[in-house]
Nucleic acid binder design. Structure first.
Length: 455
DNA sequence: AACCTCACG
DNA sequence: ACGTACGTGAGGTTC
């Protein structure tokens, strides 16, 4: 039985455990204990035969308490900040909506992708051969509308209105509702058993997807503030996934590049670093990400908005510079075929039954997972080790600083001002030394009066 | 409940 | 000819 069946779906009307008849609580609690014991009896043996005992007992189990402490500690959110931007943005959103109706000549629900598609492609006919989604509906994603921006003034307004609506509904208006009246803070859940790679996820609310890429959205981070007499401290791994790929592949050139601390994105070209233009670097950066995901010529061409021929040249050049990376990718797929799974540096497995599929699309997914999962998952292993050690040191050294958030390659802390130097040293040291690789691991850090300033 | 869209690493 | 970069969570619409 699910908890929501017992106390109702999350929201205002959700009951607390004490409002549920004791017979029902008893039934629920007993089932919890019974099922857990049954699972333990079976999984304990499996842990041993799969050689995953270290991962379980040395990482996942100790991490459980670290996560619980983070959840209980919670995060301060300055509501006055959010309320004032809510008023301003709500007004702008409504103005844009009126202008959209004017330009369309009809009123409609701008939140409805279907209605937006019908207005743009049937009423205004701004594109003869509009792209459709799998279900035959017009696709109106940001990516598509961006390319149609110049066709009609309504397009830009729809994009702007959507952007503002997203910020309001998902963050600005939602976060204040989630403040726990007892603690005055927001308490997320860090889910330890959701992802297929070993990453955490965050829910109710998700605090791992607070905006940062766009200037307007990132202002929301100003609302995430430390306690009184404390500062916000943020530390993040620099290019951890690329460094792991250098380590796992053993590629001499990439290892050397990281050891000498050079600009890895610029380094893929066979010209002096000074000769690398901003555009070359941007393309190389996208290519580097692509490699980690199991690149395709098509995928890279799409993202960079370049012809496939050019994307192919870029990829070929890349593998010429880093031949062992190419070998590593082939080897990962080969391992998946032979063993049916791939694993991370700590022995976390990703089962890949589709690696033998006769459907090339399905098989393609499995092959890309074979490349990506060990990299993404090893990064998760490493930051988990760092979190456990940092939590232990904060406790042993009687510091009042608290770890409050993890965002995949980043850790955030609430730090009493007088502790900042010690905590900075502890956090960076434990992050950088969590798991020695063939290349150095680097952690950047910053402090501020809020999450935005600390970044 | 499925779908679309979009926020993050 | 087709479909194609990895991993998530949430809000809104539609059925």
């Amino acid at each position: 039985m699910s908890i929501e069946k017992l106390i109702g779906p999350k929201g205002k009307k959700q009951l607390s455990m004490r409002q549920v008849p004791v017979e029902q609580v008893c039934e629920y609690a007993a089932e919890d204990a019974d099922v857990t014991l049954q699972l333990k009896n079976r999984l304990e043996k499996e842990l041993k035969t799969e050689k995953m005992e270290k991962l379980f007992y040395d990482i996942e189990m100790p991490l459980t308490k670290v996560l619980a402490d983070m959840e209980i500690t919670g995060v301060n959110v300055d509501i006055t900040e959010l309320k004032s931007s809510s008023d301003i943005l709500t007004r702008r959103m409504n103005e844009l909506e009126q202008e959209i109706f004017q330009l369309a000549g009809v009123t409609f629900n701008v939140s409805s992708a279907r209605q937006v598609g019908e207005v743009l492609f049937e009423r205004l006919k701004i594109d003869e051969k509009a792209k459709k989604t799998k279900t035959g509906q017009y696709s109106t994603t940001e990516e598509i509308l961006e390319k149609l921006r110049s066709r009609h003034p309504i397009v830009g307004k729809i994009l702007d209105q959507r952007g503002i609506r997203k910020l309001l509904s998902t963050y600005i208006n939602a976060l204040p509702e989630l403040i726990n009246p007892k603690t005055g803070k927001i308490h997320t859940s860090f889910n330890q058993t959701i992802t297929s790679t070993g990453r955490l996820s965050s829910s109710n609310p998700n605090l791992q997807n607070i905006p940062i890429r766009d200037n307007e959205g990132r202002e929301i981070r100003r609302a995430f503030v430390p306690d009184k007499d404390c500062i916000f401290f943020s530390a993040d791994y620099s290019q951890i996934e690329l460094r792991i790929m250098a380590h796992l592949s053993g590629d001499r050139h990439m290892i050397e590049a990281f050891r000498e601390g050079s600009d890895i994105h610029a380094k893929i070209y066979k010209v002096p670093i000074d000769a690398v233009t901003a555009d070359m670097r941007r393309k190389a950066k996208t290519a580097n990400f692509g490699i980690i995901y199991g690149i395709s010529v098509f995928g890279l061409a799409e993202r960079l908005n370049i012809p496939r021929s050019e994307a192919k040249i870029l990829i070929d050049g890349y593998f010429e510079s880093y031949p062992q990376i190419k070998e590593y990718m082939n080897k990962s797929i080969e391992v998946a075929r032979e063993k049916g799974y791939v694993e991370t540096i700590c022995g976390r497995k990703r089962m890949l039954p589709d690696i033998h599929s006769h459907n090339s699309v399905v098989r393609g997914y499995a092959e890309r997972n074979a490349i990506n999962a060990p990299i993404q998952g090893s990064a998760a292993d490493i930051i988990k080790i760092a979190m456990i050690r940092i939590a232990k040191r904060l406790e042993n050294e009687h510091l009042r600083s608290r770890m409050i958030l993890q965002v995949h390659d980043e850790l955030n802390f609430n730090v009493p001002v007088e502790e900042i130097e010690r905590v900075k040293a502890i956090v960076c040291e434990e992050m950088e030394n969590a798991y020695p690789l063939q290349v150095p691991l680097l952690a950047d850090s910053g402090v501020g009066r809020n999450w935005l300033e600390a970044h």
